[in-house]
Design a protein around this nucleic acid. Structure first.
Lengths: 137, 137
DNA sequence: TCCTACGATGGACGGAATCCAAGTCAAGAA
DNA sequence: TTCTTGACTTGGATTCCGTCCATCGTAGGA
């Protein structure tokens, strides 16, 4: 994590206590938290941190490529701190839980030029869906 | 489209003018409309149709597998009438436009058992992102 | 034609995220 | 060290999507 703080400082970030706490929360648990969950955990350490700041900071981390935003249909977005290792997601359609997965193959290579319609395609994201053992019951 | 109406009637749907209009809108343009856009187009033909009805009908069509719901990060969901032909999506990160694409390969087969963590995986969805020719300038 | 259960209505409501104007403070300058 | 300033934070208002609910209307069978 100090790595992350170093990197951010190197990019000209002003290192505030709020940003430090948000970064620490993300680093601390390798799960996929919602913005509200990040806010709750951050508030344990820094009681008066505001929601807007959490949203701002998460957005900045996403822009910098330090964190990945995972949208799960209608529910709140979740934030994935594992941004530097390419991976895909497996989402439980029951409870919204997310696991990182590493499928074989290269989806970007699977899209032929004539299927790109002139787009500058920069990213391929694979989302697997199903029921987790608990929800499948 | 009369196909669709037939199918729905066969499933016990009560065929109201509202449902007919929504179905016609989806069939009429093979683009990916938001619920609001569907409502606007439906209202041209049936001025007093309510937003709640459009949402209800779209939800039913999705449940019946006649239409696919495409979530695009924070923006409004879009509805894809092309549900009977398997395909993936290419989304412009600039303007949100969506194109149907047909990549090679089979992403479901690319997820090894030991990567499934006990989930009952039922679906693999691939989303390509990039800039469309217009947004790329 | 009449009945009735299913569907439509629209305004209130809810969650998620963004906006904004005012206040605060990190960090470079002197 | 203190000063200065613009970047950052705050929290309440606001927007955007979508759902809920009590009431009214109507499709389609009897």
């Amino acid at each position: 994590m100090s790595d992350l703080l170093e990197r951010l400082r190197g990019r000209g970030w002003r290192l505030t206590s709020q940003r430090r706490v948000v970064a620490e929360v993300l680093d601390g648990e390798h799960v996929h938290l919602t913005a509200d969950e990040v806010h709750a955990r951050a508030a344990e350490r820094l009681p008066e941190i505001s929601r807007a700041t959490v949203y701002n900071t998460l957005g900045e981390l996403v822009t910098l490529g330090e964190v990945i935003e995972v949208s799960t249909d209608g529910r709140a977005k979740r934030y994935d701190p594992n941004a530097h290792r390419p991976h895909q997601h497996l989402i439980c359609t029951g409870c919204g839980a997310i696991r990182d997965v590493h499928p074989l193959g290269n989806p970007l290579a699977d899209l032929p030029t004539e299927q790109r319609f002139g787009f500058t395609v920069s990213q391929a994201e694979v989302t697997y869906r199903g029921l987790c053992p608990t929800c499948a019951g």
